[in-house]
Nucleic acid binder design. Structure first.
Length: 645
RNA sequence: GCUAAUGUGGCGCAGCUGGUAGCGCAAUUGAUUCGUAAUCAAUAGGUCGCCGGUUCGAAUCCGGCCAUUAGCUCCA
């Protein structure tokens, strides 16, 4: 029998051999860190016996799959510990996830986070006992019987969903047995360092109509130092949290009398908003967009035509009561129907297309109370919205244009390396959420897929993430806590043109339905600002800094010159403030540094005498003296290059 | 909306088992006119998230609401 290793080398055995044995034959060191293996691409455990020619890759904690095996076993240890501390608990599921694992429990009486310590102590005992994990398989009927004996109702439900002839695997460690597909570590003693991180609620099977269970999150590593490092990194990340930093830096605030999800942009935040909107509006104009400015609300009729009334009414702020025969209005949750109405004003020719409408558009969505988060998820927000109306043959080129614009924005923000692409498709099972026309969906998704493949977009696919009217390319980004949100979206809409009876006249004088793309260029201002705060820890690149230069006036004698310098800089389009408080230089430098101002100009008697400015750059320190003219060249260069600090 | 937790001046925190609120930073004022990350002093600022209950007495105990956080569900 021949075993081919990852590096291409081969090993020969006369009879069956376990993965663990092969690892030991390769090296003693590898045998110690082997967590599992990939045999012909399939993940299995170290106990797996190889009995024919195969390709073998030994998995350690350095491999993503290795980590998952390790963490999955840790979740079983958690379950065993919880079961031992709370014998009446019922087990649900407990997978490994990015950065750790969780397990869902149904406690007879819900426990509080203080009890995690107690559970950790019990887990330590289980690890110390070093129980071997033994796998066994039962036919479906016997499996159900076993779980009934243990009173594990959720496990029975899981088994009942498996095919009738399925062989169902279990893992036993000590006297604890859990339904599980595996693979697992050979014994519990291999877990070197773990920590339970939080206790939260989670619906059984992710459905809000089901019972809410208690979910315990944890993480584990094969080295204590790595766990400490991970936990420290989490603490560090919290310092960049826009929700904390954004408030500290005076970018935004909230007020309970104004309401949840309604942040107030303070002068610095409003300036940042203005800088971004002016910039992206100009960029869109260069790319052939026409601006619209449409109402923030409309009669319910409009949303009935668009389909939002049927699919999105709960998410809208509605005014007036239809039952009482009142005129009903709703704040707009998106801009599409408004721009379509503009399109429909006047007959359009194929010569008019593509039409690209852009609007810096404020939207209102009545998010559930538990959803709001800083600037990332809010009830009123403004997006760089646009709709492109084109002929079928123009669709790909227009899609490409949208993608290029989005990528240009990301590059200028320095976020291009931090995003991932998601092809969001409908869920044919969920007929409530989507316009139920499978043929059209198939057409739309096939068109989109072919465009994405042509453009070589490295996407992942997600079922049930589409808009109700069409598939999307979502550009996803993770915040400082690792939570992912959509930053930018490009959507193909195959339905609303029909609803609004939109058309154009083609070359042959025939009436045709146009294709529509919905898209954002730099996304939603609030969310983008949040991500930028986290990306730069508040130290924005010079081109987007609300305050680019602070003039530090050293004494009252240099005040007039300081003001004059500020005035000249403002004349050159630089955003500048003067600090002429009666404080020491050190104090003012510290203040400017904490405010993350990129450039400081220090003006004392010497500078006035020599007719120069002393420049200090954030992150670089003292740059010495130069003329104001030289400084202007330097900062202009910094701004033009969109240099990222 | 659901589960768990939290809510004390702009921010970060003290305030034990109920006896009527303090500290640091920031702010303001005065003095200081200073050379590359904190000058000194004084002053002001709080219906202890809001409403109700228990009590002779509530920041502290109980209930409801509001807001915040983690997660679930939903979503740009």
């Amino acid at each position: 029998m021949q075993i081919t290793l990852k590096d291409g080398s081969q090993m020969h055995y006369d009879g069956p051999v376990s993965v663990a044995q092969v690892a030991a034959d390769i090296s003693e060191g590898l045998a110690r860190v082997a967590l599992g293996a990939k045999v012909d691409g399939k993940v299995c455990e170290t106990a797996t016996v190889l009995d024919r020619d195969c390709a073998l890759e030994i998995l350690t904690f350095r491999d993503e799959e290795g980590k998952r095996i390790y963490r999955h076993t840790c979740s079983h240890i958690l379950a065993q510990a919880v079961k031992s501390v709370y014998p009446t608990v019922k087990l649900a599921i407990g997978p490994a996830i990015d950065n750790g694992f969780y397990y869902d429990f149904d406690f007879k009486t819900p426990i509080s986070a203080e009890n995690l310590d107690k559970i950790e102590q019990e887990m330590k005992k289980i690890i110390k006992a070093n129980y071997p994990l033994k796998r066994f398989v039962l036919p479906r009927r016997k499996a159900i019987e076993l779980m009934r004996k243990y009173g594990e109702d959720y496990k029975i439900e899981l088994i009942e969903d498996l095919p009738a002839d399925a062989q169902i695997s279990f893992y036993q460690q000590g006297d604890f047995v859990d339904l599980c597909a595996g693979p697992h570590l050979p014994c519990t003693g291999m877990i070197k360092a773990f920590k339970l991180t939080s206790l939260t609620g989670a619906y059984w099977r992710g459905n809000e109509k089901n019972k809410m269970l208690s979910r315990i999150y944890g993480t584990c590593f094969d080295k204590k130092s790595d766990l400490t490092e991970y936990l420290t990194a989490l603490e560090e990340a919290k310092k960049r949290d826009h929700n904390k930093l954004g408030r500290e830096l005076g970018i935004f605030m909230t007020d309970e009398n104004i309401g949840q999800g309604l942040p107030l942009l303070m002068p610095k935040g409003a300036k940042l908003f203005q800088i971004l909107s002016r910039w992206v509006e100009d960029e869109e104009e260069r790319r052939g967009y026409l601006r619209t400015k449409t109402p923030y609300m409309a009669k319910s009729n409009l949303y009935k035509i668009s389909g939002h009334w049927d699919h999105y009414k709960d998410g809208m702020f509605v005014m007036g009561d239809e039952e009482k025969d009142e005129e009903v209005f709703a704040l707009r949750p998106m801009t599409c129907p408004f721009q379509y109405t503009i399109y429909n004003n006047g007959l359009k020719s194929y010569r008019d297309l593509p039409l690209r409408y852009g609007e810096t558009s404020t939207l209102f969505r009545n998010e559930s109370s538990g959803e709001m988060h800083g600037l990332i998820r809010v009830r009123q927000f403004t997006i760089s919205e646009g709709h492109l109306i084109c002929t079928p043959s123009q669709l790909e080129e227009e899609f490409k244009g949208c993608l290029e614009l989005a990528q240009y924005c990301l590059k200028c923000f320095g976020l291009d390396g931090d995003v991932s692409y998601r092809f969001s498709k409908w869920d044919p099972q969920d007929t409530d959420k989507y316009i139920n026309d499978p043929d059209k969906w198939e057409e739309a998704e096939a068109t989109m897929r072919s465009i994405l493949d042509h453009l070589r977009v490295p996407y992942t696919e997600a079922i049930g993430e589409a808009a109700f009217y069409g598939p999307k390319l979502d550009i996803q980004i993770k915040n400082v806590h690792g939570k992912e949100d959509t930053l930018i979206t490009i959507q193909v809409d195959m339905f609303l043109a029909e609803n609004f009876d939109m058309s154009y006249i083609d070359e042959n004088g025939e009436k045709r339905r146009p294709y529509i793309l919905h898209r954002t260029s730099m996304g939603c201002y609030e969310r983008t600002i949040a991500l930028l705060i986290e990306k730069f820890a508040g130290a924005f690149p010079v081109w987007m800094s609300p305050e680019q230069v602070r003039v530090l006036c050293l004494t009252d004698r240099t005040r007039a010159v300081s003001d004059e310098i500020a005035c000249k800089l403002r004349g050159a389009g630089i955003r500048v403030e003067v600090d002429s408080r009666s404080e020491t230089v050190g104090y003012k430098i510290r203040a400017a540094q904490l405010d993350k101002v990129p450039y400081m100009l220090i003006i004392g008697d010497k500078e006035v005498e020599e007719g120069v400015v002393s420049v200090r750059r954030r992150g670089e320190g003292d740059l010495g003296k130069m003329t104001l003219g030289d400084f202007l060249v330097k900062i202009a260069d910094d701004i033009d290059s969109k240099r990222l600090d």
